Amino acid sequence: MQKILVLNGPNLNLLGKRQPEVYGSTTLKMIEDLCVAHGQTLDQTVTHFQTNHEGALIDAIHAARGVQDGIVLNAGGYTHTSVALMDAISSAEVPVIEVHLSNIHAREAFRHKSYIAAVAIGQVCGFGAQSYVLALSALAAHLAERDAG
């Protein structure tokens, strides 16, 4: 069974209330439940962590080393600003897929740059809560291919 950590960064605790025209009406709890259910179909144990603090995200990434098989990360606004998160991902040696509810490439210009993308195995954005489902499926395939090779 694959062990997957879903990490959510700043302001994602307000999903369903915050800018529903951009992020939809789905709550973080609904996304967590969706991830757990989809993970079960992929033989994954999915755990969750959300924080508004950059250092706590870094600590969670470090703690995943040797414990988790993969990470699905929505770093929120830190995606576009955090070299420290990028370095943590590089150091952890755990495959990471970056996710976003909205299509960051169709939004403000500052959102087009992702520090996470440089060290992630892939990026899924623009599909709302389904971005997480797609990321879990992609991570399952990546891990199966890695383990077979």
Results as ranks from 00 to 15, higher is better:
Y132M: 09
G149C: 09
A117N: 08
Y23S: 09
N103H: 01
K3Q: 15
A84T: 06
V133A: 10
V99M: 06
L73M: 10
K29D: 15
D33H: 08
I104F: 02
L28I: 12
Y115S: 05
G77F: 01
Q130R: 08
V6K: 02
F127G: 07
L14H: 00
A75V: 10
Q123S: 13
S91P: 00
K113C: 05
Y132G: 01
I71M: 11
G70K: 10
Q40W: 00
A118Y: 07
G70N: 10
I58W: 08
K17V: 14
A141K: 11
V46C: 04
E93K: 13
T41S: 15
A117E: 11
D69G: 12
T27M: 02
L15Q: 04
E108Y: 01
L5E: 09
Y23P: 03
H112Q: 15
S82L: 06
L34Q: 15
E145T: 12
K3V: 06
G66S: 07
V96D: 02
A120K: 11
G76Y: 05
F110P: 02
A92C: 13
K113R: 14
S25T: 15
Q44E: 08
A109F: 13
T79C: 10
V119C: 10
N8D: 04
S137L: 03
N8T: 14
D43M: 12
R111A: 03
G16E: 10
V22P: 04
E32I: 04
S82H: 07
G77W: 02
H142I: 06
H80M: 10
E98G: 05
A84K: 09
Q130W: 04
T26P: 03
F110H: 05
E98I: 13
I97Y: 03
S102E: 03
G9Q: 11
Y78K: 02
L28H: 08
H105S: 12
S91W: 08
A138D: 02
H80I: 09
G70T: 12
G149W: 02
S25I: 12
H48R: 06
A84P: 01
A117V: 05
M30T: 14
C125L: 13
A64Y: 06
V124Y: 02
L5V: 14
L136S: 04
L14D: 01
G122D: 12
V46Y: 00
I121C: 05
T81W: 07
A109R: 11
L136K: 06
L15V: 11
K29S: 15
R146E: 12
A37Q: 13
L101W: 05
H62P: 00
L73S: 08
G76D: 09
M86W: 00
L134G: 01
G77C: 09
I71P: 14
A148R: 15
H53D: 13
R18S: 06
E98N: 09
S114E: 08
T51E: 01
L139K: 04
L42S: 01
E21T: 10
G16I: 11
E108T: 05
S91K: 12
I61M: 11
K3S: 14
L57Q: 10
I116W: 03
N103Q: 08
A138R: 12
T26H: 00
N11R: 05
T41D: 00
S91T: 13
L136H: 04
V83I: 15
H112W: 13
E32A: 10
L73G: 04
S114M: 13
H112L: 07
H62K: 11
H142G: 02
A118T: 07
N74S: 06
A84V: 10
L15M: 14
T81F: 11
T47M: 03
